[in-house]
Design a binder for these strands. Structure first.
Lengths: 163, 163
DNA sequence: CCTAAATGTTAGGTATACCTATCTTTCATA
DNA sequence: TATGAAAGATAGGTATACCTAACATTTAGG
């Protein structure tokens, strides 16, 4: 029926899906109560969300039972998680934001990023990580210094020429 | 009444505020019809939004008249615009995303970014722009090369040592 | 095994943010 | 200056995403 192309889920529904994944990983099962605590809503909201997700073929949920992802749900959840992780990594590793704030912001921003921009961000992180420097590349350390002191680091090697 | 501290506006209301600013700048006045066209909603939605914003003291709107920002509305709008511009600049200048896509993504992401993260992003752009190199710093050109070719640029100056 | 607390569901209500249909006002111009 | 088209407002409807209150089921201790 509605399983033709890749479903477009609302931010909220994506959050529920993410919560289920996290709980399965951490507790083995995803219960309504735990989902509600995780995303700070009351249990009736979770019940409603689960029937929504079930209607979309992403979740299986028997009355009074656990929430389980279908294959389709898992596939979607994996995409969502990747987006979250990439954004989170960018915030912590590039912008030097504390993990707690980064996690919060990633949670909100992950719903707003387009596949194209996600791709570019992924490439950017790849590029930074592939630096031949051990740990952070030189310029990124320079950014840390700039944030701390408000001044650019002394230029050991002038960054001028090169195509 | 509710004008005590800085108002927390919904993403949608922020969009209306932005639209008013843009129209004032481009056309001199902000009409309901133009707002509706700009953010792709019907005129009754704009009417509703304007009374909402008026109730919050951000906009003055006489029946059948133009929408005007109050001082408070202008202050808020300026903040929102800055957030938008910063995000947009990051997407275009750092991630090399085409202006059109960048604008769309910035529109969605700007509502999700926290003040803290916004601050860091601002600093990051500052840092990049303050590079002694003419134009983009060397490492950023390297990223462009990496996106195009999938390979790291030949390291003219080995990026290894340095604190 | 049975009951009380925890958990889950259902029903019904609120707020946001849209929409269409209909009515009112404004304004350009014939 | 009268009028019809454009613009704006209002009324009423839909969908999402919450909530509280009340009811049902499960489960863990006594």
């Amino acid at each position: 029926m509605q399983s033709k192309t890749s479903i477009k889920l609302s931010s909220n529904m994506e959050d529920y899906l993410e919560a289920i994944v996290m709980l399965k990983k951490s507790k083995g099962v995803a219960r309504v109560r735990d989902i509600s605590r995780l995303i700070n809503v009351k249990t009736p909201s979770v019940s409603g969300a689960l029937s929504m997700l079930a209607k979309n073929g992403l979740v299986v949920h028997e009355r009074y039972g656990y929430a389980e992802l279908t294959a389709k749900g898992q596939k979607l959840a994996k995409k969502i998680k990747k987006r979250h992780d990439t954004l989170s990594k960018f915030l912590t590793e590039i912008l030097n934001i504390e993990p707690k704030i980064a996690a919060e912001d990633a949670c909100k921003m992950e719903h707003a990023i387009s596949p194209y921009t996600f791709g570019k961000l992924t490439k950017f992180l790849e590029f930074v990580k592939s630096s031949p420097a051990k740990g952070k590349p030189h310029w990124l350390k320079g950014f840390g210094y700039y944030v701390k002191t408000g001044k650019r680091p002394k230029c050991v090697l002038k960054d001028g020429g090169a195509k």
